[in-house]
Write a protein that binds this DNA or RNA. Structure first.
Lengths: 332, 332
DNA sequence: ATGAAAGCGCTAACAG
DNA sequence: CTGTTAGCGCTTTCAT
């Protein structure tokens, strides 16, 4: 069997309390004792049982992450940041792939409760009321990444989507474009949908450009819908010279359609994306896009969670975005 | 405080033993009792403590996954399959991003030991001897996905890389290509490197085609190296008409370079990739490639792990690959 | 069918 | 500086 703290105590000729003390380096033992204990630990190949620790203490050093779908460039980058920060701070994370399925999410929340995680990070999930209530019930700190809740009970960490969209559009305007279309995501999405659309419209308006509804098409953020949206835009072409696309994946789709239609980017039409996932450097030509600091969002989100677990107050944070210029936008 | 089994027992006027029985639906209680208990549980909002359970029982229903880097299309898809299978079978997974760093890996193994996971899945990691030894030390079942260990102590699950490469090359040959180059990964990689290179050579040989060393260039599987490799190939062009590329990312890089160089794919040169990640449908033109069933690999790997945990014997499994024809290969 | 009681491995008073 | 002891919440004999 695996050696326990008792075995160590016996071997080192001390009490379990003493072993526990050196294990948690709390004061109360001589150097000699420490040496004896350490030796015993080493010889026995002893490893503390985290379950027992968690049972008596209050911390498990385990965190839960609820994420819609890990096989997704955005999610996985955020996850990467979360994981790195967790590991550096001596915590583990249980990953919960919710598939945006409310049912599954609720089940997961119970699991996390039973496993007594110290805190929870919610990534990109729309927070329904039921969801939020249950989260509160769990009575552990919660941090939201790249999402928000209307009630404002949980701190979130994201970029300023509206402002980013505004700047992306202004960037196009600064390049001389006047007839700028947008491939938007679902406007019901209060993070990546509506705000980006609003930012786009605002930029046009404030620059004295007309907002034409026929220049705005809606996709679902993914590649295929990007292709489709581009087709629609091309069909009722109103002489647009540039497009602001609400995600890199849709932008890649738009690029594909443009290519198939014999439209050259950026010669005939300029495109700016949103996200700056790995995909952005792989498209032909490489995609100019608004970069979101996904890794940092995850990393910082986890740090905040840890802070909250320690009982400190934490506030929401807006991280800076930046436009990465590549080759899909040209001056007109 | 959170209600415990004692609270439930008290409220239902039974002993904790009885509550435990209905909780684990073991025999030994009347329908009435069950009802009382269930009601108490409901009213109290009781949730069992998994730590306590794990401490006394031997199972934690928690698994560990060691993966080089989750923000990677291949890894994340495998992870997706793992997670799905785990959740469906009432288990959680702790994700361990090793960054291919031996040090980090060793630390993680200790964490998994301390948290008493029931089993471990290793994804895409080169298994050093030290690594393997520690894995054995943990004394929990281990399954390897998309990797192998020379000692053959652990069951693995992957595709037949050599055969897949062989078929990819033969596919090109069947399309009339005779001068076929290869962009290989690192030949030290015993899964995605050497076997694929061997398969390529074998196909050429068995079809009476010469294996020319100048037609083989080596990258590191990633996009940038794909671009570079393509440049090298184009520079000392020996009239090649097709290329077998050992990963989709490198293939995408090759496509970029081709485009920049004014080489049309597939008109001037045909390309077949390997992996069939999401990227393959997003390239211009869409990439013909060898599809690996990543999701299934993860899903099945986890099922095997569960089987092993139950004490049953499990064997390695080779999953089928298939060539997905898209638009980067043409008949010559 | 049900209860009492002995731990699982550890931490944290409380005594010396 | 060190040991004793009482749990943490649960499962599991062993009785009844």
């Amino acid at each position: 069997m695996k050696p326990t703290i008792k075995d160590v105590a016996r071997k080192a000729n001390v009490s379990v309390a003493t072993v526990s003390r050196v294990l948690n380096n709390q004061p109360g033992y001589s150097v000699e004792t420490e040496k004896k204990v350490l030796e015993a630990i080493d010889e026995l190949g002893y490893h503390p049982n985290a379950l027992a620790r968690g049972l008596v203490g209050k911390r498990t050093k385990t965190l839960g992450v609820l994420i819609p779908r890990i096989s997704n460039m955005v999610s996985s980058q955020i996850m990467n940041g979360i994981e790195d920060a967790a590991h550096k701070n001596d915590h583990s994370v249980i990953i919960c792939n919710t598939d945006n399925d409310g049912q599954k999410t609720m089940v997961y929340l119970d699991v996390l409760r039973e496993k007594r995680v110290d805190g929870i990070i919610v990534v990109s999930e729309m927070l329904t009321e039921e969801y939020a209530n249950k989260l509160v019930e769990l009575k552990v700190p919660v941090i939201l990444i790249s999402t928000i809740d209307e009630t404002g009970q949980f701190p979130h960490i994201k970029v300023n989507d509206e402002q980013a969209a505004y700047q992306a559009t202004e960037y196009l305007i600064s390049k001389g474009h006047k007839n700028i279309a947008m491939i938007s995501g679902t406007p019901e999405d209060m993070v990546a949908g509506k705000p980006r659309l609003d930012g786009y419209k605002k930029a046009l308006r404030e620059n004295g450009l007309p907002v034409k509804e026929e220049n705005i098409v809606f996709g679902d953020f993914w590649f295929d819908s990007g292709k489709e949206c581009m087709e629609r835009l091309l069909n009722n072409n109103q002489g647009i010279t540039a497009i602001f696309v609400a995600s890199d994946e849709m932008a890649a789709g738009a690029l594909s359609t443009a290519y198939k239609s014999g439209i050259r980017v950026p010669e005939d039409i300029s495109i700016i994306g949103f996200d700056n996932t790995q995909l952005a450097e792989m498209t032909i030509p490489p995609l100019t896009t608004v970069s979101q600091p996904f890794y940092q969002m995850g990393y910082k989100g986890l740090k905040l969670l840890l802070k909250a677990i320690k009982g400190k107050e934490v506030n929401s944070a807006i991280l800076p975005h930046v436009i990465v210029e590549r080759e899909t936008v040209k001056k007109v």
